[in-house]
Design a protein around this nucleic acid. Structure first.
Length: 848
RNA sequence: GCCCAAGUGGCGGAAUGGUAGACGCAGGGGAUUCAAAAUCCCCCGCCGCAAGGCGUGCCGGUUCGAGUCCGGCCUUGGGUACCA
């Protein structure tokens, strides 16, 4: 072989690794264990560049840990339940199960050529009955432990298709298929009691030192701990059973600025009033239109309905405030009722202006400010605030102090209590869909909701279902619903809701430690392998998936399936950026966007010449069709080129926009490395000891820098360093023996990124065994020292010249040399410098 | 709307508060070749003949020194609880 041909070498080395079994993870107590995991993929059918990037990063870590003597667990599986399989079934008439398993087979076949160091013996899919049956067992244990319960919650309801829609299926408030205006409808659903753990989930964030600070911050804000006052306004002449309106506020210090009380359209009082008030009923119905997302609710136009009722201010019972029903108040937050303070809140100000309500300042920025303030006033963070109508004393206080003082004052006067609340809501897991894990309960007329018996698990999905009409096929199935009550044996009905797919992905990382156990976990295996030492995935999962997984690890501990030590499941987290791509769209006759694959677009036009609109780069997603297929790259250049390219072009935590241009360059570089290695292997040229030493010095520097890069997710910097070292090696005048040693080291350093090429080089250069398991090279600091260094010399912080000095030269010697330079002498004009700063090994700054 | 990030040459990007632009791509010039491919060498932020000046989204601040730290904006991206 006379040139680099990955097609020939890559398959051979994958076979060699396979036969040596080096990626099989056994429980070897002699070695430190290391569990590296990338977020498992959804089996869409094709791997894309995001997968290649994600799994290559994890593979670099896994291979590096293997070479540093760790017992490595690096598994792979499939997050296989979810809507796309049902959508495919609806679109083309197949079955979600066939579609999913075919996609898994396809993707596995596309993934294997990447040469990932995965222990494939642990592979599973979440739609395997062996997996979801254990998930059902976990659910039953959680039910028994009081971690699951039922309550009403709203869903997006499509009134034409008569079906529940996911948020993604709601476009501008309308159903994506029917185009009908979506309504919010209440259903009884299952919930995980995650909010009971809010405080613990919040506090434990502080222990996650190796998580990105931004993820911890996002989770902290999501949990949203707040301190406030809960109290009631007395209601004048309310309907029977309603004599007060309970409110929660984080700004009790603004209580004297209240000008109205608002309640949610779903508040019990609103629901009572609408029975006798057709206009209110119409208003409430209007409010219930549109999707359920927080974004939609927050951005909707703020509207209110005056109920005509009034409440009494708790500190002045003669002071009456009107009661409005308002569309921006959510029943899920606090008590579903608020008081509005237009003087100190933009939203309340807008509302008060619209409905001509009074604007009453509760405090002023200073004593001489205009008391007839009619614009929202937000107090500065640092200046004290003066109460106009003080209730806690006529004192100057800052915001947080004012709030605490007001709470204390209110408690002393019998107006409510100080309360800690969390924004975090319980996790609704019920889905009115087929392709998910069935919720293992039975509804019995006599016994109510009854958990299935564990010996009846798994409750399997029926195969004979159709998707020709909208709605959940489990509901329509002729017999599947029929089941005996596990308690009394009478004829009863199975629950037809399935679980949110986030449940599937909240414990798969534990299942990998014993994927074939006949209980949810194997305690010994979990104890050995957990926690995940390094978890890697997209930042889009920063909140939901990661928070749910943290909750589940605790729940699994509580139900006895996991040691306490593993209740924070991911020791270290790395959130990689996404692979983005431009979006190409045209419009259909109704003006709706139609998306096109990059491979179908040439020079901004479709094959038939229709120009496409180019939407700026965004996250690759199937729905937007801005997806690039990496298989073409692998076929043309080999897996090592694809791996090298996705690592080299962008810092791992940042988004990378896919471009085809770099792949060719990566291939050229790997070809060059191969050529250099084969030339060195064939050479027996002598060299000078000076050149040998210089090469050795560069080698140790490269070991140091590349190792540091690999260990700190600086893959792009590590690769830049490898480019530089390759250049040094190519130009070196060192002897063949020294060059062979340097080239073997190069192979080792490249092995995590380009494992096939590295094995080939290692073999050519006389390395022993597989480079994948050869001990990782160690940099010797003594071998990295240069004799002299270059120091920049600044004048007043601007670089003017540089000096060459010995590495260890004393500060005052360096100062003398710097001051003697022409540039400094010219600038000084005979005067003395005000100050000279010498940072050893770094810089000299002369201040004039 | 709210929460969290990011912004540096033509492009991807580098830089423990210490020489801004490493490394790579694209581009320009040269060597080799009958010619090409491949390969190798050199140049390459902007303005300027030069001396020099200006430069890390914008405005201000801290510092001997700021891409980096602080305050305020702008733009783009992610999340927003039923996309995964």
């Amino acid at each position: 072989m006379s040139r680099y041909s990955p097609a020939e070498i890559e398959a051979n080395w994958r076979k060699a690794w396979d036969e040596a079994g080096i990626f099989r993870a056994g429980n070897d107590p002699a070695k430190p264990k290391y569990y590296v995991l990338e977020m498992f993929p959804y089996p869409s059918g094709r791997i894309h560049m995001g997968h290649v990037r994600n799994y290559t990063m994890g593979d670099v870590i896994a291979r590096h840990k293997l070479a540093t003597g760790h017992n490595v667990l690096h598994p792979m599986g499939w997050d296989a339940f979810g809507m796309p399989a049902e959508n495919a079934a609806m679109a083309s008439g197949g079955h979600p199960k066939d579609w999913t398993y075919q996609n898994i087979a396809d993707m596995r076949a596309q993934m294997k050529p990447l040469g990932l160091s995965i222990d494939w013996s642990r592979e599973f899919a979440t739609c395997d009955p062996e997996y979801y049956g254990q998930q059902q067992a976990l659910f039953l244990d959680m039910l028994e432990a009081g971690l699951v319960y039922r309550k009403n919650a709203v869903v997006n309801w499509d009134p034409v298709d008569m079906t529940v829609l996911a948020n993604e299926q709601v476009e501008n408030g309308r159903g994506w298929r029917s185009g009908a205006e979506v309504e919010r409808r209440e259903l009884t659903q299952w919930f995980f009691a995650i909010s009971d753990m809010a405080e613990e989930l919040l506090e434990a964030l502080d222990t996650l030192d190796d998580w990105p600070a931004k993820v911890r911050l996002m989770q902290e804000n999501w949990i949203g701990k707040s301190r406030g006052l809960q109290f009631a306004f007395g209601l004048n002449e309310g309907p029977d059973g309603f004599d007060r309106i309970e409110v929660y506020t984080t700004r009790p210090d603004t209580l004297m600025g209240a000008s109205f009380v608002g309640i949610s359209p779903d508040h019990p009082l609103a629901k009572q009033l609408e029975k006798d008030d057709a206009e209110l009923a119409a208003f409430n119905a209007e409010c219930r239109k549109g999707g359920t997302t927080e974004e939609a609710l927050e951005k909707a136009e703020k509207r209110g309905y005056n109920t005509g009722l009034t409440v009494r201010h708790p500190f002045d019972t003669a002071w009456e405030l009107p009661v409005y029903v308002a569309n921006f108040i959510l029943m899920d937050y606090g008590t579903g009722a608020i008081f509005g303070v237009p003087a100190h809140d933009q939203r309340d100000f807008d509302f008060a202006t619209k409905y001509a309500l009074p604007i009453i300042p509760a405090f002023l920025p200073s004593e001489d400010a205009d008391p007839q303030l009619n614009a929202p006033y937000v107090p500065p963070k640092t200046e004290p605030v003066h109460y106009v109508s003080t209730i806690a004393g006529d004192t100057w206080q800052t915001g947080a102090e004012a709030i605490e003082a007001t709470i204390a004052f209110c408690e002393q006067n019998g107006v409510g209590q100080g309360v800690t609340k969390y924004r975090l809501r319980d996790w609704g897991l019920s889905r009115q869909r087929y392709w998910g894990c069935p919720i293992p309960v039975v509804h019995c007329d006599a016994c109510g909701v009854v958990p299935e018996k564990k010996e009846n698990l798994p409750i399997r999905l029926p195969d004979d279902v159709t998707f020709d009409v909208p709605g959940n096929p489990l509901d329509r199935h002729p017999t599947w619903r029929n089941a005996p009550c596990p308690k009394c044996g009478a004829d009863a009905r199975r629950e037809t809701d399935t679980m949110d797919t986030f449940v599937d992905s909240s414990w798969y990382f534990i299942r990998f430690t014993a994927p074939h156990a006949d209980t949810p976990t194997d305690i010994a295996a979990a104890e050995y392998w957990m926690n995940v030492d390094q978890y890697i995935g997209g930042v889009e999962h920063a909140i939901l998936h990661l928070l749910y997984s943290r909750f589940f690890a605790r729940a699994i501990h509580i139900t006895g399936h996991l040691p306490k030590s593993a209740s924070e499941p991911f020791n270290a987290l790395f959130t990689q950026g996404m692979v983005t791509h431009e979006i190409y769209q045209t419009r259909d006759e109704n003006g709706r966007p139609v998306y096109h694959l990059p491979e179908d677009v040439q020079d901004g036009k479709l094959a038939d010449g229709t120009p496409v609109q180019i939407v700026p780069s965004a996250k690759m997603s199937k729905s937007k069709k801005n997806v690039v297929d990496p298989i073409g790259i692998i076929d043309a250049y080999g897996a090592d080129t694809a791996r090298w390219f996705v690592l080299s072009d962008s810092p791992p935590e940042r988004d990378v926009e896919w471009t085809a241009a770099g792949a060719e360059a990566a291939f050229k570089h790997l070809s060059r490395v191969w050529r250099i290695a084969s030339e060195i292997a064939a050479s027996d040229a002598p060299g000078t000891s000076e050149a040998d030493e210089a090469l050795l010095r560069e080698m140790h520097k490269a070991i140091h820098d590349v190792t540091g890069g690999v260990e700190s997710f600086g893959f792009n910097a590590a690769i830049a360093r490898l480019y530089a070292f390759t250049g040094v090696l190519a130009k070196s005048e060192a002897g063949a023996q020294a060059k062979r040693a340097a080239a073997r080291t190069l192979a080792q350093l490249m092995a995590p990124m380009t494992p096939h090429l590295a094995e080939e080089m290692w073999q050519m250069l006389g390395g022993e065994g597989l480079v994948a398991v050869a001990p990782w090279p160690v940099a010797d600091p003594a071998m990295m020292q240069d004799d002299t260094i270059t120091l920049p010399v600044q004048i007043n912080g601007k670089r003017r010249t540089e000096i060459q000095v010995p590495q260890e030269m004393a500060k005052d010697e360096v100062e003398k040399i710097a001051l003697a330079t022409d540039a400094v002498q010219r600038a000084l004009e005979g005067a003395q410098p005000k100050k000279v700063i010498v940072v050893p090994g770094r810089i000299v700054n002369v201040v004039i």
